[in-house]
Design a binder for these strands. Structure first.
Lengths: 321, 321
DNA sequence: GTGAAAGCGCTAACAA
DNA sequence: TTGTTAGCGCTTTCAC
């Protein structure tokens, strides 16, 4: 393995000069540059990134916190984040952190010690006291102090869902999902948007929510179907839950969308082939993934960054009229 | 940030001694050890892993090659791999490599230069000439020379599927899936097992296969339904495809499983809530993920390792009689 | 058992 | 514009 020393020697220049051309920094004459480049080529020299990371205190690696990669929406998002990071020359370490605050803390500590360059976090753990806005951290769907975040237009999505239900003739609508006592997340705005729109439109609505995490989603759904027989339109917090609701309702011979309209949130591709095709509010996953990376890199460069909220879109499927 | 120097000074010992107790290597008297440990504690010293990686040429990081994390089976597998790696003190870099050989090569080069400790690969790229069995690499479902691999019992699974179809009264069965001209993968054994079992049982079978990757899965499935109306039982290469087949068949009012039995392969959890519940051959994902890590670490320790084939299980759903 | 010292490959400051 | 040098924090000889 050739080192920078070998390159310098072969090119007949000093160590510093070699380093300068390799990093394209500082003044180097065209002529010298050429000599060095030749040497690099001849030797097949590749910089030792570990050594570099050691001296620059930056290893070009970002940690992605995810409750669990084993969840369709997160894995789609992770896909685009990795793709964009790779394009920008960063590696991505995955950290499945669901309910494991310590695991996240480990990486936050690594960040403090410059052992990861930055963090992109989809985190439902209580980490607000461990991080602050001067660190290169970007969050998804969550507000912690001044830390920049990216989210879809949850509020608008909530309104949109109600609008659709109303326009397709639903009279008794409900919001189904979760809430959290401990952390604030953008997701709650789906409810808020739904609620506000219902009020504006003078429509009666029901909130069917349980504290996150729901222990038994199936039971949660069955209970709903048992107790809210008059409801003819539901906006469900996410596609996975919406999809299970569709299944359970069909088991009960409730015809969808005639008797019950269902709208999800996320627009997960993985489920796109299923019948009935779910009507849903689609988050622009790819866009979100790439802006997360953009924001983080700006942060890394010391630029000022502000939260980004991306527009959503209603995807008509077969679960609404 | 306290360094090992600070620790040594505070403990009143030499640098080397401090290092020895930190790494629990070499001879250190109990007494000295205690002093050093105290100093570490008082200073809140944490070893600088980057520096360590630099000198030891090992950064305790393994790269996971995945065609795409955005695929249910892979993301489940990735989940367990990450979990196990974390337990063993390794970080996991994710590399979505579908069709991007260069991306894999990048990490293979990093491996050669000791910038990643090892590689776990689910790769469909032609990388056989770039790697060899002396490298710390473990593959999933693929044989490349002597490189160790982990897979489920694809052959047994294929036999099992046929057995089930036969026992539930199917007379005209088919295998549906893909093949590759360029790479050999364990997946083909699903077909082989199915075929062998059909022959043993004296059952007529049809192979409905197309070269991987299938451009348009939906068309592929429609064509099947158009042309093979006499078939009453299909074993499909993976759950995703099986699931879409179920949907399309139902659209055509083909009753499942009465007119057509369908068995998938994988046992993906993400789809577990869907109706009709898919009958499938379940791979022990968790076990596979964890053994991949085990094998890799053994390899890293210079131990001899051999391929591991894990048993599969038939999961009866509602798409078989 | 222990301390001193070399050196991993690189960047950056400094002097020339 | 260039070469020299210090030093990043750690592990690992090698004497003692």
């Amino acid at each position: 393995m050739a080192t920078i020393k070998d390159v310098a020697k072969l090119a007949g220049v000093g160590l510093g000069t070699a380093s300068r051309v390799i990093n394209d920094s500082g003044y180097v004459s065209e002529e010298t540059k050429k000599k060095v480049l030749e040497a690099i080529n001849k030797l097949g020299y590749v910089p030792n990134e570990t050594a570099r990371a050691f001296v620059t205190q930056d290893n070009k690696t970002v940690a992605l916190f995810l409750p669990s990669i084993h969840h369709a929406f997160f894995s789609e998002l992770a896909y685009y984040i990795e793709d964009e990071l790779d394009k920008k020359g960063y590696k991505m370490i995955l950290c499945n952190s669901s309910g494991q605050k310590e695991k996240e803390l480990k990486y936050i500590n690594m960040l403090k010690q410059n052992k990861v360059s930055g963090i992109i976090g989809i985190s439902y753990n209580p980490i607000e006291n461990e991080i602050n806005h001067s660190m290169p951290i970007v969050l998804v769907d969550r507000h912690i102090g001044e830390i920049p975040y990216v989210s879809s237009d949850n509020y608008g999505g909530g309104k949109m869902a109600l609008q659709v239900l109303k326009e397709t003739g639903c009279n008794h609508v409900a919001y189904m999902g979760t809430y959290s006592k401990t952390i604030f997340t953008e997701v709650e705005k789906r409810l808020k948007g739904f609620e506000d729109a219902a009020k504006e439109n003078g429509i009666n609505y029901t909130l069917y929510i349980e504290e996150d995490p729901i222990k038994d989603q199936t039971t949660f759904l069955h209970t709903f179907l048992n107790n809210y027989k008059n409801i003819d339109g539901v906006f469900v917090e996410n596609d996975m839950m919406a999809l299970e609701l569709v299944q359970l309702a069909q088991d009960r011979k409730i015809s969808i969308p005639e008797e019950l309209s269902i709208i999800g949130y996320d627009g997960i591709q993985t489920y796109a082939m299923l019948r009935p095709k779910l009507s849903t509010i689609r988050q622009p996953v790819e866009l979100m993934g790439r802006s997360l990376v953009d924001l983080l890199i700006k942060k890394l460069n010391g630029e000022q960054v502000t939260p980004e909220i991306h527009p959503v879109q209603f995807l008509k499927g077969e679960t609404t009229r």
